[in-house]
Write a protein that binds this DNA or RNA. Structure first.
Length: 651
RNA sequence: GCUGCUGUAGCUCAGUGGUAGAGCGCGUCCUUGGUAAGGACGAGGUCAUGGGUUCAACCCCCAUCAGCAGCUCCA
């Protein structure tokens, strides 16, 4: 007798071994129909799993556990795609094919390059397999047997996968008739019951990928796809992707004339007048808020003698990413980081504990020779400006300083409405300097700082810098790729290397602790992030052009000029659209350029010194006195309001 | 850096072994207008660069450069 406990604590009894699918059938035909997998004592497994002891069972359906079902569906779809590719290209060697965040991929080794032109054929072949509704059948084999079998088949990737897999028995999944052209793959599972359960799928892209991420290994072909329970969901996802692409900062940078890149300087951004307005507004705000937090600002040279970089350790650890040059037969390097220069400033005079904590900021322009393949718009460049700062303090001040930096960081991000940020704490790596005690002290200080704010964070074990632990702030771009913004790093190395000291209360010289921190990270990257975050529609204080005056016809151009001059004198960034277009076209153009406020003016407005304000993204308008508009706009700018709130301000 | 793809007008892209096209934008003119594209005409291209194949190359081949996707890196 076997008792099976269901999630609602009901118990079903069976005379002998029974499959999970049969239990589902017994509970109800509708459940059996919807079921994709089972959880036996919490362990996800196939519906075909035989139950031969007393267990807890949960039948997994798209309704009960959508995330798990989507993963299962995609993993199974990866098998279907692999089968399709093997059918089409018989010398394909399979490597590895998991479900990933928005779909799945399968890595293959095949001499013939797969190109997007092949996708249609692959999808057609997949469709055949799905239409045939072939069951996924699991079988298990002892490890030695598996190795013998795989050796005979001669696929080194699967052999290595098997070697890495845990346990004495390994599993295979077969789709199709073992006697007749079936497909099988070494796979942990579980899978959905049969291929017909895959609702809608699409082969998305192909790219290279190293086996096990090892750059010394052969480059494989990684084919990406996605799958959903229904065509409707797939279409929705594809539509979302299209919409996200429209937010891409590289596209908006061109459309809004913010910046450009040129062959003559790969990885070096050129900022246009519009981009510089956003840049300067951003930094005005940054300087203002840092001044409030008692930071002082310095500026150090971009090119410094190579000796400095030997002393700082960059020569040993960072040489590959640095640019070098010769001046008067001496070797110089272009700085990839600001800290060594900052250390020289620190050492320019003696320091007392009374000055601590000393917060020294630098908007430092750094150059890093990044590999050509990693360049990516403003997100990954070879020259960028860090909003760097180095805080020199005593060990017992680390925690409160870190809390101070975190508060400042969150406040700055909030000013931009950035709330989808995630944090990581990186701890001591294998290769490190400094004693375990000092690492523990610093790491605990970071943990306490995180705790005091109640921030959620992930731990990146062993991923700290060799000189100290760190907290990183990350954001995702419009296509889901994540990028680091801010960082807080405790450093035990640089003060030693540069023999930095302060005189303590007891009149002895001691080493200061140095905290490196950046909040925006790279100004370039941060601009890219907010361009995507706002989809180019900046809040008023950041908008390159804040107001556009749109005369109904030439007859009102003169009033337009009058308004234009008044707005300019009120420090509003505005233009006057005197083009020989109808008002519709002017509005369309202003919207396309994401202008926050459009002032439509004709004879009616002119008569009473009014403006008809049209707000970006809205169809309605409000007619108010020109001076009132100016006052509202100035207030909104001063507040750095996130939303265009003229409507509520005028109530 | 690696693998694959791409490079044609300012932008988005079509196209052919016999020296090029559309839409948008831009310019001029008509029009003088009331809330998301009024109309007409016109100017703009060594088809990324350098080699090669060919009677002939934007098209085929090779290399270089840059961009895109991913991997690795960075963090």
């Amino acid at each position: 007798m076997i008792s099976i406990t269901l999630p609602d604590d009901n118990v079903l009894e069976f005379d002998g071994p029974v499959k999970a699918s049969e239990v589902a059938e017994k509970i109800g035909p509708r459940l059996a129909q919807d079921a994709l997998a089972a959880r036996i004592d919490g362990q996800l497994c196939d519906l075909s799993t035989t139950i031969d002891s007393n267990i807890k069972l949960e039948i997994v359906t798209p309704k009960s556990d959508p995330a798990t079902c989507t993963d299962l569906l995609r993993h199974s779809c990866a098998h279907v795609m692999a089968q399709a590719i093997c059918n089409l290209y018989s010398d394909t060697k399979l490597v590895y094919g998991p479900a990933v965040e928005n779909g799945f991929y399968y890595d293959i080794d095949l001499d013939r390059p797969i190109t997007p032109d092949d996708f249609e054929a692959i999808e057609a072949e997949m469709q055949k397999i799905v239409a045939a509704d072939i069951p996924f059948i699991r079988y298990e084999m002892a490890r030695e047997e598996v190795m013998t079998k795989l050796q005979a088949e001669g696929n080194r990737y699967k052999i290595e996968n098997a070697q890495r897999a845990q346990g004495d028995t390994l599993s295979f999944y077969v789709t199709g008739d073992p006697a007749n052209n079936c497909f099988e793959d070494l796979c942990l599972g579980p899978h959905i019951p049969s291929t017909g359960r895959i609702g809608a799928f699409k082969v998305m892209s192909v790219a290279g990928a190293y086996f096990h991420g090892d750059a010394s290994e052969k480059m494989l072909q990684r084919i990406y796809g996605t799958a959903f329970a229904s065509k409707k969901e797939l279409d929705k996802y594809l539509h979302q992707l299209e919409e996200a692409k429209k937010r891409d900062h590289r596209l908006l940078g061109r459309q809004l004339d913010l910046f450009s890149f040129h062959e003559e300087g790969p990885g070096f951004a050129f900022f246009h007048p519009n981009g510089m307005i956003v840049w300067n507004e951003l930094l005005d705000f940054w300087r203002h808020i840092h001044n409030d937090c008692d930071y002082k600002e310095i500026r150090t040279p971009i090119i410094l003698n190579e000796k400095l970089w030997h002393q700082s350790g960059h020569w040993d650890n960072y040489k590959e990413n640095m640019y070098f040059t010769q001046i008067d037969e001496n070797e110089f390097a272009v700085k990839p980081m600001n800290c060594p220069g900052g250390c020289l400033v620190y050492k320019s005079r003696p320091h007392s504990y009374k000055e601590f904590p000393q917060r020294i900021a630098e908007l430092g322009l750094v150059h890093r020779h990044e590999a050509s393949g990693v360049l990516h718009g403003l997100f990954r460049v070879r020259q960028f400006t860090q909003d760097d700062a180095h805080i020199y303090c005593m060990p017992d001040q680390v925690e409160s300083e870190v809390i101070g930096v975190m508060n400042l960081t969150i406040e700055i991000y909030r000013t931009f409405g950035l709330d989808d940020i995630y944090l990581e704490l990186s701890t001591k790596p294998e290769k490190h300097i400094g004693s375990d005690e000092i690492w523990e002290m610093a790491t605990n200080a970071l943990i306490r700082a995180l705790g005091s704010r109640g921030e959620k964070y992930a731990i990146n074990e062993g991923d700290g810098a060799f000189y100290g632990p760190k907290i990183d702030f990350h954001a995702r771009d419009c296509l889901g790729r994540s990028w680091q913004l801010g960082t807080i790093q405790v450093d035990f190395s640089m003060p030693d290397r540069f023999d930095m000291t302060y005189v303590d209360r007891d009149n002895t010289e001691k080493r200061p602790v140095m905290i490196h921190r950046a909040i925006l990270g790279s100004i370039e990257r941060f601009l890219g992030i907010i361009i995507e975050h706002y989809a180019g529609a900046f809040p008023l204080w950041l908008a390159p052009e804040q107001v556009r005056i749109l005369p109904i016809s030439e007859k009102t151009n003169e009033y337009g000029e009058n308004l234009y001059n008044r707005l300019r004198q009120s420090n509003l960034r505005c233009t006057l659209d005197k083009a020989d277009d109808k008002i519709n076209a002017k509005i369309k153009r202003a919207h396309d350029q994401r202008i926050p406020y459009m002032l439509v003016v004709g004879p009616k407005e002119q008569a009473d010194d009014l403006v008809a304000v049209r707000i970006r993204g809205q169809k309605n308008q409000c007619v108010i006195k020109a001076d009132m508009f100016v006052a509202h706009a100035q207030k909104e700018i001063a507040e750095r309001a996130l939303e265009l709130n003229l409507a509520e301000a005028s109530d």
